[in-house]
């Protein structure tokens, strides 16, 4: 069950996208998410979906893997879109019941919400699928570095981030093990009503928290015993390097942005 979700998971590989600088990938993914809101007419959506299709092709991973991975999230997106559909006033009213209504503006906004959400989630998935968690942490640290001027604890923040990312797979594994153990003791996680399912979560969460806190304690001891004292002026083992490919990627996104703005006014 937990294995199905692709968001936040990294798949090692050697594609062109895998090898891009994490700083470039982070900034460009965010940039893509921002310009996803510039879409207005169907031409702009076609352009954005063609672009994300090309990006998925470049990851070297199968298209169906993305479809299945995003599948569980589709309901969240549909739910958001339906809320938009039912509560947006304006334009021609097709149907209404109490405060619920379906209007032409509502149809437009909910379609836009649905498609933009899809674009954003796909791009976020591409980012995490092709970037190792530690590379993401390195990228964030590099991008936050200017904030040191205002005494923002950049190194500590980056360390927290990389520790958190590092333990995601560990905790998922542990959750799976505990779920198995409790299922063997007769807990049904996928059966029964809402209350019954919520009660089934308790025997999973308590051991998971106990384990996580113990692990955090062990990690702190291990770091201190190896001389870690806050992150002052540490040199780096992995040095980030900007390549031509990164510049090309930046140019491609800028071109996408320009074409998007042009199509918007057509």
């Amino acid at each position: 069950m937990l294995e199905q979700l692709t968001l936040g998971r990294y798949i090692p590989g050697h594609s062109w996208l895998h090898r891009l600088d994490p700083r470039a990938k982070l900034v460009l993914a965010c940039y893509f998410i921002v310009i996803a809101f510039l879409t207005t007419n169907w031409l702009t959506y076609v352009l954005m979906f063609a672009f994300i299709g090309g990006v998925i092709f470049l990851t070297g991973l199968s298209f169906s893997y993305f479809v299945r991975g995003i599948g569980p999230l589709i309901w969240l997106i549909v739910f958001t879109a339906i809320l938009q559909l039912l509560f947006t006033p304006g334009g021609h009213i097709y149907w209404h019941w109490g405060i619920l209504m379906i209007t032409s503006t509502g149809i437009q906004t909910s379609t836009a919400v649905f498609l933009r959400f899809l674009l954003i989630i796909t791009m976020a998935t591409v980012l995490t699928l092709t970037t190792a968690p530690l590379a993401i942490a390195d990228g964030v640290e590099a991008l936050l570095r200017p904030l040191r001027v205002i005494h923002f604890p950049v190194a500590q923040t980056a360390l927290m981030l990389s520790v958190a990312l590092r333990f995601v797979p560990t905790l998922l594994d542990e959750a799976q093990t505990i779920m198995n153990a409790q299922r063997a003791r007769g807990v049904e996680f996928n059966n029964g009503g809402l209350i019954k399912r919520l009660r089934a979560i308790v025997p999973l969460l308590i051991p998971l928290f106990v384990g996580a806190i113990g692990r955090a304690d062990d990690l702190a001891t291990a770091m201190e015993s190896r001389g870690y004292q806050g992150a002052t002026n540490r040199t780096r083992y992995r040095v980030l390097k900007w390549h031509n490919a990164d510049t090309i990627a930046v140019v491609v996104i800028l071109v996408l942005n320009i074409v998007l703005v042009v199509l918007r006014h057509m």
Binding site: E174, T177, A181, G186, E188, N191, P203, I206, P207, V210
Partner: peptide
């Protein structure tokens, strides 16, 4: 199907590695 598994779960007791990690009550 999972519905038929509950009596099997009872019939076969499983002691996992480091089973103390399953305690919660």
């Amino acid at each position: 199907t999972n519905k038929h598994l509950k009596s099997l779960h009872q019939h076969v007791g499983m002691v996992f590695q480091f089973p103390e990690n399953q305690l919660f009550d």
